[in-house]
Design a protein around this nucleic acid. Structure first.
Length: 703
DNA sequence: CGCTGTAGACTTTTT
DNA sequence: GTCTACAGCG
């Protein structure tokens, strides 16, 4: 037997050896999925003689990709040329070579959320619409949703009825034109345009079908429609498509992910072989059972039963904190305890629903001098000062990027302000000029006004210098950009925040130097692309000492010996915006399931009786999710000293209500029941009027 | 043009 | 409580 099959269970072996044809792997949490995947790739190369370069593996993060290639390298000699990456990075690479078919230059820039919002804002103004009526974020979300569904502006127009929808159509149209003018693509374009490219140009598609004969997709439950089509097109000829996922861990529907893709896989590929990985190697029986009983409440899922040979382990500790400080104090004290008695701080993780919750925990950990690191939050490459420095580099890269142009001219101030830049852009548009043409345009003084001439030529001199330097050394170019932009002087006012910003700029330089050492073919363009598609988790190093703080979303795919989930209160988790809709609530539950199943040995669930929120005090009941765990697995601990009666398990069944009862709903307030239907009631609320709510999900009680 | 102060919004999660 | 956007002034 091949060495590659040693230490694998029967199902994992099937994953590894079923190399031909469509394969669907339903992999439960902690079921040794990555192991099966890496061994599969190694097996393809070592046993089946498949060339590494004809394998494409798509992962959810860049970090997962580099980890995977590291693990494969340990199994076989060279996996170096297996193509691995996220959907976005793979699509970007394809488009670099092929975008000319679609009328884009291969040197397009990638606009992040912030850049796209700026463009949309300009577009709304240009169309004479008010961003009061159509907020930028709304427009952005609707356009993004359409792109994920591969709906272009023309098609979108077919649905549009209301004024708002019609406005969105116009914004969408103009936005795409603006992106083209800027030679830019947003995140969604990377996917949508690649699929369009494949659909419009069969010969291009064929090229990639012939190149990648074996395709693997991890976290398939979190693919959106565009990604789904991308995969289907690429594997259409050979059908060697292996997807791995777990519908119970689908937590990204807000950005268009559709876990129906995994449930429907067998319909798309009738000859699909299905393998279920249900043996859990990660968690104790207590944790696994608890997680199972929570997720079983969901109706939209495929049935599966995880099991483990691990020991029962300790009960799950539930701590009722008096406040968010007390909550943080509990985390800090327990962490100390764990460190002293049995483990390392790096074995500990704290998960929360929203980034804002990290602050209280951080303060407490700082107080107690417990080292910690945060993954997520304001990402490094989204910081203002970093974006400012990168804007100089983006213009220097030769991109016709007006967003970066404006940014680099205004921060730090150059003497040319917003008004002049708008005029410059309009002037450029009228005369079909690109940014770089402005440098040599003799008519600017007439067209815009004399006072832009001097600062602008100064600006272009600097850009030129950065450009020239980039030919020789990227890091010198970055260093020059930081210096010549005047950012450092501008920030040198001695204030604490600005000192930190200067530190960040220095950090940027060391990141580039490091990258340069690893990749000798790093160009300015490839560096900018890498930066655009990087995520925070990609830079996270688990071996660093200290406990780890992150959102539940970020925790997917990771595991820790000791896990704290904090803020387990109604309105916080489940989040208030997700409580009124049954399927959104199920997603919250999956998120809780993901968090729980990260824990190997000990799980702590924490909620606070009162919490500071928006400067005001909020009282929330304990999260319903706690009540969904069998009580025998829980160990309740009280804290804070203050007594305040609060029961876990506020969920009532319809039998408890009758028509005419006064009820109180968490959001709709007081009302009177008009009608009861199975587990739904219709009530007339004093403020909100007639509403039907599901008792299974709605935070409603009798008064 | 660019800085300052204030009113207003805002917090779900992210490639 | 914190960040941002913008009006109004120098």
């Amino acid at each position: 037997m091949s060495d590659l099959l040693k230490d694998l269970n029967k199902e994992q072996k099937e994953v590894v050896t079923s190399t031909e044809g469509p394969l669907l792997v339903l992999a439960g949490a902690g079921s040794g999925k990555t192991k099966a995947l890496t061994h599969r790739v190694a097996y393809l190369v070592a046993e089946k003689g498949v060339l590494p370069e004809s394998i494409l593996a798509i992962t959810f993060t860049n970090k997962a990709a580099s980890e995977m290639s590291g693990r494969i390298d340990n199994l076989i000699k060279s996996s170096g040329t297996v193509k691995m990456g996220t959907f976005h990075s793979i699509c970007a690479q394809i488009l670099r070579r092929e975008a000319h078919h679609l009328g884009y230059p291969g040197s397009f820039v990638i606009f992040d959320q912030d850049d796209s919002k700026k463009v949309i804002k300009q577009v709304i103004a240009k169309l004479g619409l008010s961003d009061k009526k159509i907020p930028v974020t709304t427009a952005k979300n609707l356009i993004s949703g359409a792109k994920n569904e591969l709906i272009g502006p023309e098609e979108y127009a077919n649905y549009a009825e209301s004024f708002r929808e019609k406005s969105i159509v116009e914004i969408y149209k103009t936005y795409q034109k603006e992106l083209e003018k800027n030679e830019a693509m947003d995140f969604d374009d990377l996917l949508m345009l690649t699929v369009k490219l494949f659909q419009k140009f069969p010969e291009v598609l064929k090229k990639y079908q012939n190149l990648w004969k074996y395709i693997l997709i991890d976290e398939y439950q979190d693919t959106n429609h565009a990604q789904y089509l991308f995969v289907r097109l690429l594997s259409a000829t050979h059908g060697n498509i292996c997807v791995i996922g777990d519908d119970d861990q689908s937590i990204y529907s807000f950005r268009g992910a559709n876990f129906q893709n995994i449930l429907d896989f067998e319909k798309d590929w009738p000859k699909t072989k299905v393998v279920r990985l249900e043996k859990n190697y990660r968690s104790t029986k207590a944790i696994l059972t608890a997680a199972q009983s929570v997720i079983e409440r969901n109706t939209e899922r495929s049935k599966k039963t995880l099991w483990t040979e691990n020991e029962t382990g300790r009960p799950i500790e539930v701590y009722e904190a008096a406040s968010e400080e007390d909550e943080a104090g509990f985390v800090a004290r327990k962490s100390e305890e764990i460190k002293v008695s049995k483990g390392k701080l790096s074995d500990i993780a704290v998960f929360y629903r929203t980034n804002a919750q990290s602050r209280a925990i951080e303060e407490q950990l700082l107080n107690m001098r417990i080292p910690y690191k945060i993954v997520g939050g304001v990402r490094f490459y989204e910081r203002k000062e970093i974006k400012d420095a990168l804007a100089w580099l983006r213009v220097a890269s030769g991109a016709n990027d007006w967003i970066a142009f404006e940014r680099s001219l205004t921060s730090p101030p150059s003497g040319i302000g917003k008004l002049s830049i708008t005029r410059l852009r309009e002037y450029g548009e009228e005369n079909k000029l690109k940014i770089k043409d402005l440098a040599s345009d003799g008519n600017l003084a007439n067209a815009i006004g004399g006072r832009v001439v001097e600062p602008l030529s100064e600006y272009f001199r600097k850009i030129k210098k950065i450009q020239d330097t980039a030919q020789k050394s990227l890091s010198s170019a970055v260093e020059l950009a930081i210096k010549t932009s005047g950012l450092i002087e501008h920030l040198s006012d001695g204030s604490f925040e600005n000192e930190e910003r200067i530190e960040n700029l220095k950090e940027l330089l060391s990141v580039v130097k490091e990258l340069e050492n690893v990749k000798d073919d790093l160009t300015l363009e490839s560096f900018l692309e890498e930066v655009a598609l990087i995520s925070d988790i990609d830079n996270y190093n688990e071996s660093d000492e200290g406990i780890t703080l992150m959102t539940l979303h970020t925790s997917k795919g990771l595991e820790y010996k000791y896990v704290f989930i904090v803020g387990l209160e109604e309105n916080i988790f489940p989040h208030s915006r997700s409580m009124l809709d049954a399927s959104e609530l199920e997603e919250e539950r999956r998120l809780f399931y993901v968090g729980m199943t990260r824990a190997r040995e000990e799980l702590y669930l924490v909620y606070a009786r009162r919490r500071l929120y928006f400067g005001g005090i909020q009282h929330n009941s304990p999260s319903r999710f706690i009540a969904e765990i069998p009580p025998n697995l829980l160990d309740f601990v009280n804290g804070g000293g203050e007594t305040e009666e609060k029961e876990i398990g506020d969920i009532q069944m319809s039998g408890a209500f009758k028509v005419g009862d006064e009820v109180e709903h968490e959001f709709f307030g007081r009302g009177k029941i008009l009608e009861i239907n199975d587990d739904e009631i219709t009530a007339d609320f004093n403020v909100y009027g007639k509403k039907t709510v599901s008792l299974e999900y709605a935070p409603v009680r009798k008064v």
